[in-house]
Amino acid sequence: MAEIGTTARTGETCPESGVWQAVGTPSTTAPIAKGNTMPPYAAAAVTWKLIRKA
């Protein structure tokens, strides 16, 4: 089970359902379900950080 602060890159499989935040500026948050592919943000590959579990 992934912990708060876990990171995943665009294109990787989401390790934990929850709210993920794009690292960097500009930033955004998105609800992403475990098993889904981590999405790009602002048309670029980013690192996502888990900030809240579902």
Rank of each mutant, 00 (worst) to 15 (best):
M1T: 13
E3T: 07
E3G: 05
I4P: 11
G5I: 05
G5Y: 06
T6Q: 09
T7V: 09
T7K: 07
T7N: 05
A8S: 05
A8F: 00
R9L: 11
R9E: 13
R9D: 13
R9Q: 14
T10M: 06
T10S: 13
E12P: 03
E12V: 04
E12S: 11
E12D: 14
T13S: 11
T13D: 09
C14D: 01
P15W: 00
P15G: 04
E16S: 09
S17C: 09
G18E: 00
G18Q: 01
V19H: 04
V19E: 10
V19M: 12
W20E: 00
W20L: 02
Q21W: 04
G24F: 02
G24E: 05
G24D: 05
G24C: 06
T25Q: 09
P26N: 09
T28Y: 08
T28I: 12
T29D: 10
T29Y: 06
A30E: 12
A30V: 12
A30Y: 07
A30P: 08
P31K: 13
I32N: 01
I32K: 01
I32P: 01
A33S: 11
A33H: 07
A33R: 11
K34Q: 15
K34M: 11
N36G: 15
T37E: 15
M38W: 02
M38Q: 05
M38S: 04
M38H: 06
P39W: 12
P40L: 13
P40E: 15
P40C: 15
P40N: 15
Y41W: 14
Y41I: 06
Y41P: 04
A42I: 10
A42P: 07
A43M: 13
A44R: 14
A45V: 11
A45C: 10
A45W: 10
V46F: 02
W48Q: 03
W48V: 03
W48E: 02
K49I: 07
K49N: 07
L50R: 01
L50H: 03
I51W: 02
R52C: 07
R52V: 06
R52W: 06
K53V: 07
A54T: 12
A54C: 09
